[in-house]
Simulated assay, not measured.
Amino acid sequence: MRRWSNPARAMTLAACALFAGCARAEPPQPTPVAEHYRLIADSATYPLMRGLTNAYAESVNPYARFTIEQGAPDRVAERLRSGQVLLGATSLVPPAPGGLKWWLADLALDGVAVIVHADNPIDGLTLNDLRDIFAGARNTWADYGQDALGNIEVAVREAGDGARVVFDRVVMGDQRLTFDALVMPSVETMLNFVTLRPGAIGYTPSASALGQRSGAAGLNVRVKVLALDGVPLTSEKLRSGDYPLARTLNLVSLYEPQGELRNFVAWALGPQGKALIESLGYATFP
């Protein structure tokens, strides 16, 4: 019988050990792939959805990528119906497509904040006062004891905007809007206008006003939020329903979200999401 020499045997054993070590190596792991999701939100919910999606991507799933389109509530419905987006957020639930029902989830509460220049001495108005002002029946601040402010400059949002719909329904009723009203195309332009015009009055989503966020071109926004019928705009008054221009912000889809969007919705409606919603100036449901 042929015997191996000690050097040959040592080399053979080393080769076997090397082969065995290679065999035990961990298999290569697949490279994570970013997943992209397109959402849509109206002007009231856009800052909220941007904050929620950014936080979710940072703390829960760094491979989730969200693009959020902004549009009026009817635009939200159009994009959902076409299937170009799978999830929306809106302050005004649009009519569902024929024969279908929206999947809805209550996301947060906010209010339509009535705003004036920061230096306006008036702290509150009644709904009747607002109706008179926005109808043009009263057009000078002297009617409210503020002669130095001059004429009242009324600013409104465009037809179809969620805040405009709520304001017209609750405040104006069947009263026509004054022809002198100036239409503001965005939240930012509304905030800018009221910041720059001492005699101005307008309205905007509560989170944008209470947060005093920057307006267009980085303008430092300074406005005053008025109490209505003696009720201040606070989270507590929104939850209790005492604030007259409170409204619900909804997540909306044609179908119940699935996959990663379902995970995002569950997180947004859970404790972490609610804490972030409150920090952004919105109110949450009990």
Rank of each mutant, 00 (worst) to 15 (best):
204 T>S: 13
256 E>H: 12
256 E>P: 11
167 F>K: 06
58 E>C: 00
49 M>D: 01
121 P>L: 05
44 A>F: 03
192 N>A: 06
32 P>H: 09
58 E>H: 08
51 G>N: 05
127 L>N: 04
273 G>Y: 06
123 D>Y: 10
40 I>V: 13
41 A>Q: 07
60 V>A: 08
241 G>M: 06
229 D>L: 02
34 A>E: 14
129 D>G: 04
37 Y>K: 07
16 C>S: 08
129 D>H: 13
157 R>Q: 15
15 A>D: 08
114 V>L: 10
46 Y>C: 05
179 F>C: 02
252 V>S: 01
249 L>Y: 07
61 N>I: 13
6 N>F: 15
225 V>W: 08
95 P>E: 08
17 A>Y: 10
237 K>M: 13
249 L>N: 11
14 A>P: 11
68 I>S: 05
250 N>H: 14
158 E>N: 14
273 G>R: 01
227 A>S: 15
26 E>N: 08
16 C>T: 09
147 D>I: 14
100 L>A: 12
233 L>E: 09
217 A>E: 14
45 T>Q: 01
181 A>V: 04
77 A>D: 01
235 S>M: 13
276 L>P: 10
197 R>I: 10
273 G>V: 04
72 A>Y: 13
194 V>H: 02
120 N>D: 05
135 A>G: 15
67 T>H: 12
183 V>N: 05
16 C>Q: 07
274 K>I: 00
286 P>E: 12
98 G>E: 07
17 A>S: 09
99 G>Y: 10
190 M>K: 06
140 T>H: 15
